[in-house]
């Protein structure tokens, strides 16, 4: 692209066999005890080992439970599960960049910025504690765009429709979205929503209110891409209109400002902006068609 890549960031997973000559490094973590509390920086020192990643550094921090100056502290909280970048749990801001902690190798980070690593929670989602955030909104968007195939039921109906290799190769990348939220974190159009429960409000009422708020805010690139995935599925497209209704409703695709950060940060390299453009086309046609069909 003409103006693309102004530098500033290291390309992810840049390769090099050089192991930096260090025996320990410092991790600065932005901590927050609970929603609504003030956040604060805390520094930890971690001994270096071969093949470490940010998760193993956090594991060591948890085991130590002590800051750089020997203060005993509660272990830092974070989310993770698969440790191989398929579950999407461990997204955080590492040296300012949104990415998975499990594939953030210490060796590479040290090349980037020797001796120090900075960890912050994602900024577009409410912090629950430390690096753990509440990404309900991200999943809620999948409900909003009806990201599923509306089959009749689960009894045997013989094989599904034939699909060409080419179709498969187009859909497969979209189906790899692991709901990690990087695309939302980096999107300038996706802004944080944090609601607090009123005293008088029941849990059900609160979650209904939250869902309603989420539904009227920007759905995000991942959901647009899922809508495209299911609108191109031979059975999924039977309710394509409903998905396009969702994408043209409040918080729909019109909110996208084409900054294209989403596609640049997506760890699964999902062609999000292609999906956005395809959805742009079909929503336009859909709205025109609805206009004339009135």
């Amino acid at each position: 692209m003409l103006f693309d890549y102004f530098g500033g960031q290291c390309p992810p997973y840049a390769m090099s066999d050089q192991h930096p000559e260090i025996d320990s490094f410092e991790v600065r973590v932005l901590r927050q005890d609970a929603p609504g509390e003030r956040s604060r920086w805390e520094r930890h020192r971690v001994t270096y080992e071969r093949d470490m990643n940010v998760i193993s550094a956090l594991q060591k921090i948890a085991a130590q439970a002590e800051t750089v100056d020997g203060q005993p502290v509660a272990p830092v909280c974070w989310d993770s599960n698969c440790l191989e970048e398929v579950c999407g749990a461990c997204t955080m801001l590492i040296n300012g960049r949104t990415r998975q902690a499990c594939t953030a190798l210490i060796d590479r980070l040290m090349e980037d910025c020797p001796g120090e690593i900075e960890l912050r929670p994602m900024s577009k989602f409410p912090v629950i504690r430390d690096l753990v955030v509440d990404r309900t909104r991200l999943f809620r968007a999948l409900t909003k765009v009806k990201a599923w195939v509306p089959v009749d039921g689960y009894l045997d109906r013989g094989q599904g429709p034939l699909r060409s290799m080419e179709e498969q190769q187009q859909s497969y990348p979209l189906s790899e979205c692991m709901s990690c939220g990087c695309c939302l974190e980096a999107c300038p159009q996706y802004t944080k929503i944090e609601s607090t429960q009123d005293e008088s409000e029941s849990d059900e009422d609160f979650s209904a209110r939250k869902s309603a708020t989420y539904d009227s805010a920007f759905v995000g690139a991942h959901a647009i891409s899922q809508a495209v995935l299911f609108n191109t599925n031979p059975i999924g497209k039977f309710i394509a209109g409903e998905r396009l209704d969702a994408l043209t409703g409040p918080g729909g695709i019109q909110m996208c400002g084409n900054a294209q950060n989403c596609v640049a940060v997506c760890p699964k390299e999902i062609p999000l902006t292609t999906s956005i453009a395809r959805a742009g086309r079909s929503t336009t046609l859909h709205v025109l068609k609805k206009w004339f069909d009135r």
């Binding site: 599923w148 195939v149 089959v151 109906r157 599904g160 290799m165 498969q168 299911f230 599925n233």
Partner: peptide
């Protein structure tokens, strides 16, 4: 039928 993108 549920949409799994099996290789073809």
């Amino acid at each position: 039928r549920l949409g799994v993108t099996f290789n073809r």
